[in-house]
Each structure stands twice: as structure tokens, then as C-alpha cells.
Amino acid sequence: MIPAAELERVYERPESLTALHTNYCPGCTHGVAHRLVAEALDELELREQTILVAPVGCAVFAYEYFNLDGCEAAHGRAPAMATGIKRLLPDRTVLTYQGDGDLASIGIAEIIHAAARGEPITTIFVNNAIYGMTGGQMAPTSLPNQRTTSSPSGRDVALTGQPLRVSEMLATLPGAAYIVRRSLHDPANIRKAKKAILTAIQVQQRGLGFSMVELLSTCPTNWGMTPAEALTWVKDHMLSIYPLGDYKVSDAARELSA
């Protein structure tokens, strides 16, 4: 082993994360998403100006894991709560961090209207196609025929509809300035996700409108897979239903992401 002093430190836990160990299951990509958000805030030197709104779901303790001012929203209401904060403190960076049950089901009205108003907040939307915290029930984002504890024979789209594609839907709203979908299933995609999060926060800083990064994520425990199998499942099954891409990049936002 060579002495660390002769080496350059190229990667370490970002300052915007606390030292607290997370309650996430082994291999859960919530941790990756947290780290990327924290790295982006560090790089933009925004840690001291940022307020995080945590969701209800597995990320309910996000306000403990981020070394930021934070608060805890009711289920699905994070965009409304973030609106209240941002309107009072327009020069601060306000983030919501929400899962697919929280954002795409119970909170769909709040996210649509926040985007429609062009609320200059940034939403990190973690889509793993299932309700994690309550033990693996079907979400509006669950894939056709996906087995969950509330669709034990697989999601029957004749009875429960097709998966809700939130990025595509929000992209139709003029208030949305930056809506992209990325994935956390391998290092190359994680790096792209990080860049998108950086851009989304910069879109907010410039007051260009609502920004959201959807992150395809895993739930190894409730999918009944190993963490590595879960990453493969994202690649093999989720990408076709949820294609990665830039769904809305306003002209002003395009200059930032270039």
C-alpha cells in the first residue's frame, strides 16, 4: 500500500451527506441517488442555501441523511410544501426527493400543478416501479405483469391500466423547463444522471422553471432479487417501458446542459 499522502483524493463522501448510515436495504439505489444529489450540491457550493423536502416512502428519513436544512412532507405533498418554502425564500435552492408511489400516485396533482406553475423547484423522482416501504405493493409505475404483493398474479393492465409515464406527461406543460429520465443501473448511466441533476439544479438557480430528473431505480428486496440482478432487471425490463432521454429541455435550459 502506498502512503495516502502521495495520492490525490479523487472520490469521497460529499459534504452534503451526513455520516449517518442509511436504513436502505443492501444495494438499493436510493443511496446512489442521495450521493449524486449531494455531489451536485457540493460542486455548485449550494449546501448552505438548500432546503430539502423529504417524501413518505423509503426515503422518509432523507432529511437525516442529507447535511441540509430539511423538512418532512405528508405523502405526495412535497411539491406543495416546496412551493410554500420557495415562495417565501426565492433565493434558496429547494429540492423535493420523491418515490413513484409518493409522486405518481397520491401526489400526482401536486406535481402536475407545481410543474404547470413553472415553480422553480427541483424534483428528484426515484422510480422503482413498486411501493418499497409498505412492502412491495403495486404502484402506478409497476410494469405490465409485474408481480407485487397487491398484484400477486402480475399487474393486469386490463384492470389497473398501463404504467404511468410521468416525465412524458410533465414534459407537455409549458412551466416545465427541464424534464429528463436517467437510470442508475450502471456506472456510465450514473454519471449521466449526475450531470442531469447538476443541470436541473442550475435550471432552478437561473429561475428558468420547474425541473425534474426521473431516476430508474431498484428495489432488490421487494423485487426478490440480488442487488446485481435488480440492476440487470432495470436494463432488461424497465428501459423499454421507461425510455431514457430528455423529455423537455427549454431553450434557456439547453444552454446550461450543453
Partner: peptide, 17 residues
Amino acid sequence: AVCAVICPDACITVFRQ
């Protein structure tokens, strides 16, 4: 640093010459 990029628990500090 690929390991640190994929680590969900921010456990890994990477040093490079």
C-alpha cells in the same frame, strides 16, 4: 472510482496517483 460511483452507501474513498 467506478466502485465509488456505484456504491449506494458512500463507503468508498478513492485515491489516485
